[in-house]
Simulated assay, not measured.
Amino acid sequence: MPQSSTGSTEADTFLVVCGHTHLFPGARCRLQGLSDPQAFAADPWPIDLDLCFSDDVVTEAELRIEDTARPVHTVSACTTGAGAPVDGRSWLIREFVRTGDEVELTIGSPAWT
């Protein structure tokens, strides 16, 4: 579904699955549930996310489109499955790639917003 002038008309929150217990530059995560992953990969719009890490910890996140060169992925603070606290942080998104019915996000450097 193409982006409207007020944002997507899709569901409020989307699942993002990450193959690690935390984010870092180069980490890849899979965004699921978009009705038109090709359109989103080509021209992402702001959405709310539930980020699920490999240790089954789920935390709130959001994708923001700002005046930076790249979209920003902001993740709430959480505690890993092993009990380690992880501060909330914002990350630039290096790349969006459609992979079937998902969009793979490649995490870039920290965003100092």
Rank of each mutant, 00 (worst) to 15 (best):
G81D: 05
T79L: 07
A42Y: 10
I107C: 03
L92G: 06
V97A: 12
C52L: 11
E62Y: 11
A39E: 10
G33S: 07
F24K: 08
W91H: 03
L15M: 15
L23E: 00
E104W: 06
A77F: 04
G88I: 00
R98F: 06
T13I: 11
L49V: 06
C18V: 09
V58N: 14
E10R: 07
R64N: 12
R89S: 09
A111C: 10
S35M: 11
W91R: 01
I93Q: 03
A69W: 12
L51T: 02
F53A: 00
T99N: 14
L105K: 01
G33C: 05
P37H: 04
R98V: 08
R70I: 09
A42W: 10
A69E: 13
L92Y: 12
H20T: 10
E60N: 13
I93R: 01
I47E: 03
G108Q: 03
V103S: 02
G83A: 04
D12I: 15
L49G: 01
L23S: 02
T59I: 02
W91E: 00
V97L: 09
L92N: 06
V97K: 08
V72N: 01
P85L: 06
A69K: 10
S109K: 12
V16G: 01
A61Y: 03
T9E: 12
A41W: 05
E60Q: 13
D50W: 09
R94K: 10
S109M: 15
S76K: 11
S35A: 14
A42F: 09
I107E: 02
